[in-house]
Design a protein around this nucleic acid. Structure first.
Ligand SMILES: Nc1ncnc2c1ncn2[C@@H]1O[C@H](COP(=O)(O)OP(=O)(O)OP(=O)(O)O)[C@@H](O)[C@H]1O
Length: 757
DNA sequence: CGCCCGCCCGTTTTT
DNA sequence: CGGGCGGGCG
């Protein structure tokens, strides 16, 4: 085994794997083998006296966790990885919360609210408080509550935090703290935790219960954290509780240049504060990229060099120089899809390249559509990852809501969802009355349902009967909870609730796909039960075990099924993956970078890191593609190439020549030519003004620059042109800038204007 | 109470 | 364009 280690790892990687005496921080560039290091490190620990259950390995997605265990299994085929604590922060901590629920006053069958549940609850609170739901945008309220939780600001802290209160007041949401308070309380009352609570309550559990904290400190003799750059403050505080001492055995691995989840609270500052908390931490840098050609690595380096906020790294590749990165231009999104597919076919005719070696990446999920259409037309196999997950389909959520109410009758979001599904005559009016009573008497909805007469609810006898029969249905199913396995109970639910009948009456294609999904759900329960039996010897898998894993699984967890297919996914979803050939599509000014980031330098840097991640997924070939018009909200919109294209040192680029004269140029005055806002866009639609951004077009007279003339560049400032090479859209200029030295600019993309010497 | 039609809004990215 | 929601009617 020792031999395998030194053969498969370079000396820095080997150090990262074998240094186990104290904390370590592995700063790893893209493709430098951090996944490999983590795998070998776990194997190393298991070979050096650590029991699997003493190892806590925290990953970013469930898929990454699964892959880590699978790879360890390949290295050590003795099943020792089985009992390792390996999973996302959320899934590992929900396991702990289930064990320790009593200390916090939850039951072990607590519900996990997903974002939809959270938002519905917030919405109903806004209504209850008679607040204007225009001013109190549900998504905004939700995200502010989430940010507060991730900064460990409880409702009682929020009320005292003048900065937050001022900010809310400034944004016309002065009552936000009251919504937060109510939301917090309602979750507690309904025995429910949202995603952030899984972390927050773990933190509170460990902070306030010394004995429990000590137990887990002792249990987890070694802690590994993958994708450390995307952890948030709350997560770092939990780690600090689990590994409090300066010489704790804790190894975190990350790349600040690949931090792309700040919108969710991730904080690169965690990397810096790690060294503060653990001053003796060993810092190991991995800088050799084993994945990509030199051209790709160097191009990526030139992208990230435009960011101020970063840790200096010298990522290099010793693989071949490789091909230039090709910039493809198209007339429309449809044209873009066709061009990309033609290129795929061309590559396949030239090289032995499999469909599964190819990825089409994009900034937003909505962009997959035109590619899917084209791929279907051309009969090319493909798989779209991400988007809405299986568990987010309405019919699935409805059934899961039954499961939830059966396991946890206090779960109000689930109860409201199914009380009249399938329709059983308990309509909106009745529900309003019931909810009103529940609020008046400060009591759960379930309680009101059971004995409405006790709470002054005025409803007809027939409605009363309908409620009664619904209650007894749920109670009967609850009784089966202890006697039936998850699968049998689930089948029962689907039959007895009337869902089966409801779904089978319709014969539309959509209805058929719903039936298929429900069958899929039953299958997945069967599989889950099987897995639990095999790995843990768990004979009777309960419905609430299944619910927990269902609530925590996401669309990112889907795995390739072995059928060779082109991969379609967002750049976010591609993090950690690699492909021989990568197409980064939609490289446009109003799309990538996302227009909302435009005026926020921090967010622009995150968009740039995202671009960095995209390019570094490629092993051999990388293409950057933009379209000049794109369908958005149903109508065509003109677009300009992304400013990110000129972040890449032009020596690594080549591009399609076909439209030298019609090529739109990135404007030198981005402030004037800002993208149309959705509001303007809508106005344009109504007044039938197409081409709202035509002012962005500039005649090719811009190529009228010569050696010796002076320019003012958007970012680099003033400079003198000292050399011109290439022709048409290939023309480039070497410019000597007064402040930043010499740069190579591609005239087609560079943002500058001519000035007088 | 339930269904249907029409309007409005959106879109980052996800555990 | 398409999903979600509210208003109005049967
Ligand atoms: N020492 C090594 N020798 C040869 N190949 C290596 C070595 N280390 C890693 N690799 C290869 O380099 C590629 C990238 O490794 P890995 O996926 O572990 O990188 P990473 O740091 O996780 O990348 P990223 O952060 O960009 O997702 C993989 O194909 C891996 O097999």
């Amino acid at each position: 085994m020792e031999g395998t280690f030194s053969k498969s790892l370079n000396s820095n990687q080997l150090e990262a794997v074998t240094y186990c005496d104290g904390p370590s921080l592995v700063i790893a560039g893209a493709g430098s083998g951090k996944t490999r290091v983590l795998t070998y490190k776990v194997a190393y620990l298991l070979e050096h006296g650590y029991a699997p259950y003493e190892i806590l390995a925290l990953t970013f997605t469930n898929k990454a966790a699964k892959e880590l265990t699978n790879r360890v299994r390949e290295l050590l085929p003795n099943n020792s990885e089985r009992l390792m604590w390996c999973g996302t922060f959320h899934s590992v901590f929900s396991r702990i919360l289930r064990i320790e629920h009593a200390a916090l006053g939850f039951t072990s069958t607590f519900t996990i609210y997903d974002q939809e549940d959270s938002r519905k609850l917030i919405k109903s609170i806004i209504k209850e408080f008679c607040l204007d739901d225009k001013a109190y945008n549900v998504a905004t309220v939700n995200s502010r509550i989430s940010f507060a939780k991730n900064r460990i600001i409880l409702p009682s802290d929020y009320e005292k935090n003048q900065d937050l209160l001022k900010r809310d007041a400034r944004d016309n949401m002065p009552e936000l703290h009251r919504i937060y308070s109510a939301y917090f309380q309602r979750c507690r009352n309904t025995n429910a935790l949202d995603f952030d609570d899984l972390l927050l309550f773990t933190y509170l559990l460990l902070r306030d219960h010394e004995d429990i904290c000590a137990k887990y400190q002792r249990l987890f003799r070694y802690i590994l954290v993958d994708e450390f750059q995307d952890t948030n403050y709350l997560q770092s505080r939990i780690l600090l509780l689990l590994a409090p001492s300066g010489n704790s055995r804790l190894c975190v691995v990350g790349d600040d240049a690949q931090s792309i989840y700040a919108f969710r609270g991730a904080d690169i500052g965690n990397i810096l504060s790690f060294q503060k908390h653990y001053p003796q931490a060993r810092l190991i840098k991995l800088e050799q990229n084993y994945r990509s050609t030199q051209t790709i690595v160097n191009a990526a380096n030139s992208i990230i060099s435009h960011n101020k906020d970063r840790i200096q790294k010298n990522v290099f590749s010793k693989l071949s120089e490789g091909e230039l990165i090709r910039v493809m231009s198209s007339y429309s999104d449809q044209d873009e899809s066709m061009k990309v597919l033609k290129e795929i076919l061309r590559l396949r005719s030239l090289y032995s390249i499999d469909y599964s070696d190819i990825a089409i990446l994009y900034r937003t999920n909505a962009q997959s559509r035109s590619f899917e259409n084209a791929l279907n037309q051309m009969n090319i196999p493909y798989k779209v990852y991400g988007g809405i997950s299986f568990y987010q389909h309405k019919e699935i959520k409805d059934i899961l809501a039954y499961f939830r109410v059966i396991c946890n009758p206090l779960d109000e979001e689930a109860l409201v969802r199914i009380i009249n599904y399938p329709t059983r005559g308990i309509g909106a009016t009745t529900l309003t009355k019931l909810r009103y009573a529940a609020a008046q008497f400060q009591i759960g909805l379930w309680q009101v349902l059971k004995t409405p007469q006790n709470y002054e609810v005025k409803i007809s006898a027939s409605t009363q009967n309908k409620i009664l029969s619904f209650i007894s249905l749920i109670e009967e199913l609850q009784e089966s909870l202890s006697t039936m396995g998850a699968y049998d109970l689930a089948s029962d639910v689907i039959k007895r609730s009337g869902i089966a009948e409801e779904l089978h009456t319709e014969k539309t294609p959509e209805a058929l796909s719903r039936v298929e999904n429900v069958d899929g759900l039953l299958n997945s329960i069967k599989e889950f039960s099987q897995e639990q039996l095999e790995s843990l010897g768990n004979e009777q898998v309960s419905l609430s075990d299944y619910l927990m894993q269902a609530s925590l699984s996401s669309s990112q967890d889907a795995v390739a099924d072995g059928v060779p297919a082109v991969t379609l996914m967002t750049v976010h979803a591609a993090k950690g993956l690699e492909f021989d050939t990568v197409f980064v599509t939609g490289m446009e000014d109003n799309l990538f970078p996302n227009p909302n980031a435009r005026f926020y330098p921090k967010e622009m840097e995150e968009e740039r890191r995202l671009f960095y991640v995209a390019v570094t997924r490629a092993k051999t070939r990388c293409f950057l593609s933009y379209a000049k018009s794109r369908y958005r909200y149903g109508s065509a919109e003109m677009c300009n190439p992304s400013p990110f294209l000129c972040d890449i040192d032009s020596q690594y680029l080549s591009y399609d020549d076909e439209d030298i004269f019609s090529a739109p140029r990135v404007s030198s005055k981005p402030h004037v030519t800002s993208i149309p806002s959705p509001a303007i866009n809508r106005a344009a639609r109504y007044s039938r003004i197409e081409n709202t951004s035509s002012q962005n077009y500039t005649e090719s007279s811009m190529f009228n620059v010569k050696v010796g003339s002076y320019i003012e560049h958007e970012r680099f400032g003033r400079g003198e042109i000292i050399e011109i090479s290439g022709e048409g859209s290939n023309a480039r200029a070497k410019v000597k800038f007064e402040n930043v030295g010499e740069k190579n600019l591609l005239l087609k993309f560079a943002k500058f204007k001519q000035v007088n010497g």
